[in-house]
């Protein structure tokens, strides 16, 4: 079976795609964490969904969301 994904011909392009994808993932994470917390998700649940510790997700997002006026629900 032919695979749908074709590696870029030049590894430089493939590696640059990895860099751009990481940045894109970070930006998506910011938006999705904000949405979840606005929807009433607790930090624990967000952490569970992302597969990271509660401390990690809190450290990364709490200050930013607080400045946007978004506070996570206490459980």
């Amino acid at each position: 079976m032919e695979t749908a994904y074709q590696q870029p011909r030049d590894p430089a392009d493939g590696l640059a795609a990895v860099v751009a994808l990481r940045r894109l993932a970070d930006q998506l994470e910011d938006g999705e964490v904000e949405r979840a917390v606005r929807d009433g998700w607790t930090w624990s649940l967000v952490a569970e969904a992302l597969g990271v510790t509660r401390q990690a997700v809190h450290k990364k997002h709490a200050r930013r969301l607080k400045a946007l006026g978004v506070e996570a629900r206490k459980r």
Binding site: Y5, P8, D13, G14, A16, A17, V19, A20, L21, R23, L24, Q27, L28, D30, G31, E34, R63, R64, A67, L68
Partner: peptide
């Protein structure tokens, strides 16, 4: 342009994404 082309190389169109406005405090 570099970002758009790098993502296009793996089949992703950055134009398809509605990204939240940048906001960092740390």
């Amino acid at each position: 342009a570099e970002r758009a082309h790098s993502l296009a190389a793996v089949g992703i169109d950055i134009g398809d994404f509605e990204l939240p406005p940048a906001h960092t405090l740390t």
